[in-house]
Every structure is written in C-alpha cells, then in structure tokens.
Amino acid sequence: MNNKSLAEENYLPNNLANKKEFSLKSFFLQWEWLLILILFLVFIINSILSPYFLDANSLLGATSTFLDKAFIVFPMALIMIMRDIDISVGSTVALSGVVMATVYNSFGFPMEIAILVCLAVGALCGLINGLLIVKFKELSAVIVTLGTMILFRGIAYIILEDQASGNFPDWFNYFGWGTAGNIPFILIAFIIVAIVFTLLLHKTTFGRNVYAIGSNPTASRFSGVSVDKIRVIVFVLAGVMAAVTAIFLASRMGSTRPNVASGYELEVITMAALGGISTVGGKGRMLGTILAVFIIGFLQYGLGLINIPSQTLLIIIGALLILAVATPKLKLPKFLLRK
C-alpha cells in the first residue's frame, strides 16, 4: 500500500444528496397524528356524554376557561427542549398578578401602568431564574426553580397576606371574557402567541440553537452558540408569559390572591410532555404542544359539563403525564420502527 492509494481511497469526492426524500411511513409515524386522534376521541366521547358539548359557540367560549395557563406552555416547551425545567411558573403568575393588583389598588396607578408592571415583574422573575441557573451551573434548574417557586409565592403572601385584591376597571374585566364576534379575545391572543412561538422555534436561528443546546450543550457551546444568553432569554420568556397568564386570570376572576395558579407548573409540563416535548431535551414540536393544550382543555370542559368534580381532573392529568412520558420509552413493534 503506498500513500497515494491509501489517501485517495478515503479522500475521493463523492456526491451527497441535498434534497430530502419524502417517506410516507415516517410522515404518518409522527406523534402529532396520535394527538389528533386523541383530540377527536375527546370530542366524540364528550358529545356522546353531553348533548350540549358540540355547540360551536359554547365550544369557542369554553376556550376562555382553559387557555389562560396555556400561554406558559410555549416557553415551557422551549425550556424542556433545552433540558431544563421551570416549576416556578405558577408562583410567578401569583406574584406578578398580586403586584399588578397592588400597584393599581394600593398605589393608585392607572391600570395600563399596572399591566406593564405585571409584565416587568414576570420578566424579572424569569431573569432571576435564568441568571441563577447559568451563574451556578452546579445547581440544576430543578433546585433553583424549586427555591424561587417558594420564594415568589412567599413574596406574594407578604404583599397581600390572605386577602384578595380586585376592583379592576370594567374594560379590564371585560378583557378576560369578551369576544370579537364569537371569538374570545383570549383565543385570539393565544393564536397570535402560538404563531410567534412556532415561528421562533422552527424558523429562526434562535430556535435551532435551542434544539442544539438541548441535544448537546457542550458541543453547542464549543460551536459558538451563546448557550447562557439563550437560556436566560428563554427563562425570561417564561416569566413574561406567566405574567400574561396572570393578566388574563385576574381579568377573568375579577380579582387576584396570593394562592392562585398553584399547580399550574404541573398542568403546563403535562401539556408540553403530552405534546411530544421530550423531558430529556432536544426533541419536540410546537404543533404537538398546541394540540395537547386543546386535548386537556376540552377534556376538562367536557368533564365539567357532566359534573365530574374538578379534583378527578388531577388524577387524569397525572395519569396523562405518566402515559405521555412513558409511551415513547416503551418498545414499538418492529414494523413501525424506521430502520
């Protein structure tokens, strides 16, 4: 063997395809199809159990009962794709809402300012989470957000004790219930946010970097991805969306208290996991997450219609989360696996 043959043999130019082949099997083997199926099932079962369910107007109206927490699901999906988790979002909702109500009621600022303050508090909460996580890499996101979860809720209690704070202006209260035509404002807001986050995750370099970080954080950093910056931004987004949730929640309820939105983190994580966002990072799409929001929402709504107590929903959500996380870990039958 002389040097030329050895090198040439391994250094010949070869042609690589740069157009993706379409595979019918892999097209249908997507998690989203399963979700669409489940969503249909939820509709069918609900409409059998309750004749009122399939009324288009009430269906649209129903969305305003469950969409408030759904805003958080988008940044939570980003966080989970990055291999992190944020269990402080429920407390952030409570704190930003409480501050908003206090700024309006106790300090007498106009509601518009109070809303801005609410968003700012949410962003600050997210910033604190993000900075703690990137500055103290030895700590996991679990433990940091566990600490801030208690802290944020605690501050909300310090501000309002066990009081409720309401008396918002009428236009603000109308915001949570109002509709444009038949379509609730909250649904419109949700659709806008959904589009923005879907584009952000799937069509921008930012989204690509989020996937990179979740798939291999070290390689991403070595490849010049600003890992810390992106992590902080995503946590801030989570805080801001929690504040948006707080606004809609306060508007719909007419008041807010320090104990609102407890357990939201679980519902949101469940929606994301059910939507196919991997809990170990790097995988998942926004479409699945959006479908999961409606599956859980309409399930909740349907159960309400047939008078099943809301606590039962806890069991169902818990079970759904386990199923959603465990199913991909179980072995698929061979013929369904891509080579």
């Binding site: 740069n18 990179a212 798939s215 291999n216 390689a219 070595f222 790097g282």
Partner: peptide
Amino acid sequence: LQGLILSWDIGRNITLP
C-alpha cells in the same frame, strides 16, 4: 461529546457554528 450533535443530520451539524 464536544464536537457533534449525534442526533442531528450531517447538514445541520455543519452549519451550526
């Protein structure tokens, strides 16, 4: 561990930086 994202395709890995 440090260079590539194994679960990604060749193209995306090349353009990441």
